[in-house]
Amino acid sequence: MTKLIIQIPCLNEAEVLPDTLAKLPRSLPGVDVIEYLIIDDGSSDDTSGVARRWGVHHIVRHRGNRGLAEAFRNGIDKCLAEGANIIVNTDADGQYAGEDIAQIVAPVVAGEADIVIGDRSVADNAHFSPFKRLLQRLGSTVVRTLSATDITDAVSGFRAISRDAAQRINITTDFSYTTDMLIQAGRKRLAILSVPIRTNAATRPSRLFKSIPRFIMNTGVTITRAYTTFNALRVFVLLGSALTLIGLMPMARFLWFFIIGQGDGHIQSLVIGGALLTVGVLVTTLGILADLIATNRKLMEASMLKLRRIEEKLEAADRASDQAQASITASATQTIHSKAS
Rank of each mutant, 00 (worst) to 15 (best):
L190V: 10
P107M: 02
A110G: 04
R144G: 00
I171H: 03
E311M: 11
L208E: 13
D153E: 08
G55A: 04
F258C: 05
T329A: 15
L17V: 11
A160H: 11
M249E: 08
S303C: 04
D40C: 12
S303H: 08
A191Q: 05
V143C: 05
A320Q: 15
A97S: 10
E35T: 10
D180I: 07
T145A: 14
G280S: 08
H62D: 11
G83R: 00
V143M: 08
G49I: 01
D264F: 06
L190S: 06
V60F: 14
R187C: 08
R308N: 07
V109I: 14
F215D: 14
K339E: 07
A185M: 04
V283P: 08
L4W: 12
R159A: 04
T90I: 03
N200S: 13
I115Y: 02
T222S: 11
A317Y: 07
A320T: 14
T173V: 13
A165V: 10
I34E: 13
G139Q: 14
S338P: 00
N200H: 15
A302T: 05
N12F: 01
Q7K: 12
T179V: 13
G261A: 06
Q7V: 05
T199K: 01
Q167N: 15
V279F: 06
T284D: 00
S121V: 03
L37T: 00
R207S: 15
N231P: 02
I197V: 15
T20N: 06
N296Y: 06
A110M: 12
L37V: 00
A97M: 08
T152C: 04
